[in-house]
């Protein structure tokens, strides 16, 4: 097990390194000069050269790359070109709302979608299956940011305690924090939940047809026990995989939803820094997102071993 984790971490490191390299190259391919953008059109040639040297942009690309990699290896993401603030600090600042919204959205989606998918499968072709399936399809078909707009128009305007704008950290009161992230979280969770619900339903239907479910019925167990003890965990196994894979989609949803709710999150930061050609911030954001993504997937795989006794990572062989 430990060896497996070590191997996976090493693999993750390689992935992150490749992502970092690709991003470095791509960012430099963005047309537009950051110095030009920072100083405006009328700055003197001299001032530009000076700033360029100061920011290390006058050096050859490979030197810039080597320096960036060197600092990255030490966990240093560099400083923003435009403000000079360390990128890591910026990311922690904007990461807080993004992560809060993403996690809460995922939690809401899972806690509704999994039971709904379960019930839908058990009542296949009955009215509640149709209703749940309809809602799930609707959810899959809605862009998260539009759900956000709907929530603002229909909910936030009626209920003052659910603000349509901005973000407050948990330090300033859990209630205030929660009331600011609950609507964005729902907006993020709706499309995600729709997919999970469909997945849970089809997985459950498949499990209900397995031979071991017939065995469970042949033992004279009650229907509830058969479902909850013999089917549920088996049905959950593929759902966990999908839930992990879709984290990337979830994050993409958060970016747009943050903008609807006027929250200074990762999405805003990224879009602004792309516009300003703030290379280190763009690079840093993408790398951090890749790190988060790779680590969550590792976590999902480990959760997998708990759910599925057939999978024992590590040195092979029995138990």
């Amino acid at each position: 097990m430990r060896r497996y984790i070590a191997k996976r971490l090493l693999h993750s490191l390689v992935v992150v390194w490749i992502v970092a390299t690709v991003v470095f190259a791509v960012v430099r391919a963005i047309p537009g000069d950051p110095v030009q953008l920072m100083l405006g059109g009328d700055a003197t040639q001299e001032a530009r050269e000076q700033l360029r040297t100061q920011l290390g942009l006058d050096e050859p690309i490979y030197v810039q790359y080597a320096r960036w990699m060197g600092r990255l290896a030490q966990g240093d993401l560099g400083e923003s070109l435009s403000t000079g603030v360390p990128v890591l600090e910026l990311l922690i600042q904007v990461g807080q709302p993004t992560v809060s919204i993403g996690l809460l959205g995922m939690l809401i989606a899972l806690s509704i979608a999994i039971p709904a998918g379960l019930i839908s499968a058990l009542h296949q072709y009955e009215w509640d299956d149709y209703v749940a399936t309809f809602i799930a399809f609707l959810g899959i078909s809605m862009p998260g940011f539009w759900v956000g707009i709907l929530l603002i128009v229909f909910i936030s305007q009626r209920f003052e305690f659910l603000p349509a704008f901005g973000y407050v950290g948990p330090g300033e009161g859990i209630r205030a924090w929660f009331s600011h992230i609950i609507l964005p979280a729902i907006a993020v969770g709706v499309p995600y939940g729709g997919i999970i619900m469909r997945m849970m339903r089809s997985s459950m239907l498949e499990v209900m047809n397995e031979d071991y479910m017939r065995t469970a019925r042949a033992k004279g167990l009650s229907p509830q026990l058969i479902v909850m003890k013999h089917a549920f965990q088996n049905a959950l196994i593929p759902v966990v995989t999908i839930a992990g894979i879709l984290l990337g989609t979830l994050l993409g949803g958060v970016v747009a939803v943050e903008i609807v709710f006027g929250i200074q999150g990762l999405g805003r930061l990224l879009i602004n820094s792309v516009h300003q050609r703030d290379f280190p911030v763009v690079q840093g954001s993408i790398v951090i997102i890749a790190v988060i993504f790779v680590l969550t997937n590792l976590l999902v795989d480990l959760l997998y071993t708990v759910l599925n006794p057939k999978i024992k990572y590590g040195d092979g062989g029995e138990s």
Partner: peptide, 20 residues
């Protein structure tokens, strides 16, 4: 079922629950 009358199925791999 499972008490006075019990049943043995053909395929013991698929007839036993893999997670119990």
């Amino acid at each position: 079922r499972g008490g006075e009358i019990s049943m043995i199925f053909q395929d013991p791999m698929n007839s036993l629950n893999p997670v119990i």
